[in-house]
Structure formats: C-alpha cells, structure tokens
C-alpha cells in the first residue's frame, strides 16, 4: 500500500489565542515496502503527522491518500484504515492489560471477529515475528522485561495484519540489549512480511542502521529527505535544527573540514574503520 500526502496542513486550536500550526503544507510519498525513518525534535510535527496517517486526527486542509484513495472521503471506512495502518504508540507496554501474553495479542483480532483458527494463527505468527517463543504464551505480560513487554505490545498491533506499521519511538527508555532486541525484531519483520514501516526516532544510530530513507521534520515542514548517507552527510545542518548525527559522522566531518580526503557518507563504525584505515595506510 502506498501513501501520498498532498499539501497537508494541521492547525491546533484554530481561531483561538492558542492557535498553533503543527504541520504546514507537507507533501510526502511513501512506496509500498519502504522502510522510512522519521526524525525531528520534540514539537517538530512528527507525532501530528503519524496520527494523520491512520485517521486518528483529520487535516485542517490537504489530503492523505492510501493507494490513491482519500482516507476521509468515506468516514465509515476509517475503521478499516486503522486496521491497514497499524500504529504502535510511545511506551506501548502501558497498553498491555490481559492476564496472559497470548490473550493480550489476541485482543485485536478477536475484536475483528475472526475465526478461532485465524486468531490462533495470527497470534502465533505475530509473537514469532517479534522473537517471543511459546514459553511466554501463558506468562503475565507484567512478568516480562521491558524489551519483551514492548515486543508483546508490537505483536498486538501486528496481529491485526496491517499493511503499514508505524512505530513511535520504539526504543525509548530501553537498555542497549532491549533496544537491540526490538530493532532486530523490526528488521526481521520488514524482511519477512515486506510491509511498509515508518520508524519515528530521536536516535540517529537506530535509524541509520535500519531505514532506507529518512524524512527530517522541523517546525511542521519537511526539512530534508534522502537516504541515511545523504542526510547524515549534512551534519552541520542537522545540528542547527537540534538533531545530532551518529557520533562517528562528526569525526569524519571534522577531518574533512581539516582537509583530509574521506568519503562524505559515513555513519557506521564499520564504514569509519574502513575509511580511516585507508586514510592512514593508503599513503605508506
């Protein structure tokens, strides 16, 4: 399913003294199967944007097209839109409530009035995708570690079989191990199911590892878009809008500013090691 956003503007509290333009003439196209990293500092409009994508809030002006169809054209279809576009909020583990992991993941599909058999299949598939084995099925979700809880919550969204999955800060507050587990699960999910993923994050290291394309937001509009390589090469601009590139990008940028000949588009440790090795050994 492709997403097309045309001239989307959203104004909170319009015509009052609290009026605030959260999105200002945003235009984006996202292809089926793309892995998008959506970054921007608090208040840049990224949460407002993702809430538009599954019809949680409506545009002040402009339109959101899913496979060419305006999601607000027929309001009775919004429920279907929300099934097709799954949204995992920040701290999704706060939304866990069932007695067992299995029941919690089954909640969505049960409400969709699917057959027992289909529900069972979806729950098992979703839990497998996020890397949770049968041993946790009967456990209380509250017994699990932070990273596991969050994976259960994501499985709950997955069990609705969305075509697009939006994850709002899925690694916030986790330790490095929990973070790596979640990121691995998301990567697998994208690989296995080929669904479109939009990952909202402050962590440049995280998005650098996963996304095909980045969308950088600032003050309600799109400030940059491009591959991670293209975006992280613009370290100084990112800094100006309150974002940070991965630490290693700064090393490369500073060395380049000192006149050393290095490729511009380095943002992982592996790439940096290779480039610096060539720089140091190349002239011997």
């Amino acid at each position: 399913m492709s997403i097309k956003i045309n001239h989307l503007t959203h104004i909170y509290n319009a015509d009052t003294i609290f009026e605030k333009t959260a999105l200002n003439d945003v235009n984006i196209e996202i292809q089926k199967g793309e892995f998008i990293g959506l970054i921007g500092h608090t208040g840049s409009g990224k949460s407002t944007l993702i809430q538009h994508l599954n019809g949680t809030i409506s545009p002040t002006s402009g339109e959101i097209l899913l496979d060419g169809e305006n999601i607000h054209k027929d309001k009775t279809k919004l429920k279907e839109v929300r099934q097709r576009v799954g949204l995992a909020f920040q701290y999704p583990e706060h939304q866990l409530f069932e007695m067992t992991v299995y029941k919690d993941v089954a909640f969505g599909p049960t409400n969709m009035k699917l057959t027992e058999q289909e529900i069972d299949k979806r729950v098992k598939e979703a839990l497998q995708t996020v890397g949770l084995s049968e041993t946790v099925y009967d456990k209380s979700p509250f017994e699990l570690s932070g990273g596991q809880k969050r994976r259960v919550a994501i499985a709950g969204v997955l069990a609705m079989n969305p075509e697009i999955l939006i994850l709002d800060e899925p690694t916030a507050g986790l330790d490095p191990k929990g973070r790596d587990e979640i990121l691995y699960a998301i990567k697998q999910l994208h690989k296995q199911r080929g669904i479109t993923i939009i990952l909202v994050s402050h962590s440049m290291e995280d998005v650098a590892k996963l996304a095909d394309r980045l969308i950088v937001m600032e003050k309600g509009h799109i400030a940059m878009t491009g591959t991670p390589k293209e975006v992280f090469a613009r370290v100084r601009e990112l800094e100006k809008i309150g974002l940070a590139a991965p630490q290693i990008s700064y090393v490369i940028t500073e060395l380049k500013e000192k006149g050393y000949n290095l490729p511009e588009d380095i943002y992982t440790v592996e790439e940096a090691v290779k480039a610096l090795y060539t720089l140091l050994k190349g002239e011997e």
């Binding site: 490095p176 191990k177 630490q247 290693i248 700064y250 090393v251 440790v269 090691v273 090795y277 140091l280």
Partner: peptide, 28 residues
C-alpha cells in the same frame, strides 16, 4: 550488554587491524 562510544569502538577495531592508535579515545 552495554554499548561503547562509537569512537572508542572505532579505535579498538583500527588497533586490531594493526594501526597503533591510542585505545582510550572517548570523544570526537
């Protein structure tokens, strides 16, 4: 289960490849 700063890890990897770079690099 902990991270190390990217620059420290880079120095560590470079040393493994035979470059005599100091190992206690912590900042850009």
């Amino acid at each position: 289960g902990l991270d190390v700063p990217q620059v420290t890890e880079t120095a560590y990897e470079l040393k493994k490849m035979g470059i005599s770079i100091s190992q206690d690099i912590l900042t850009v």
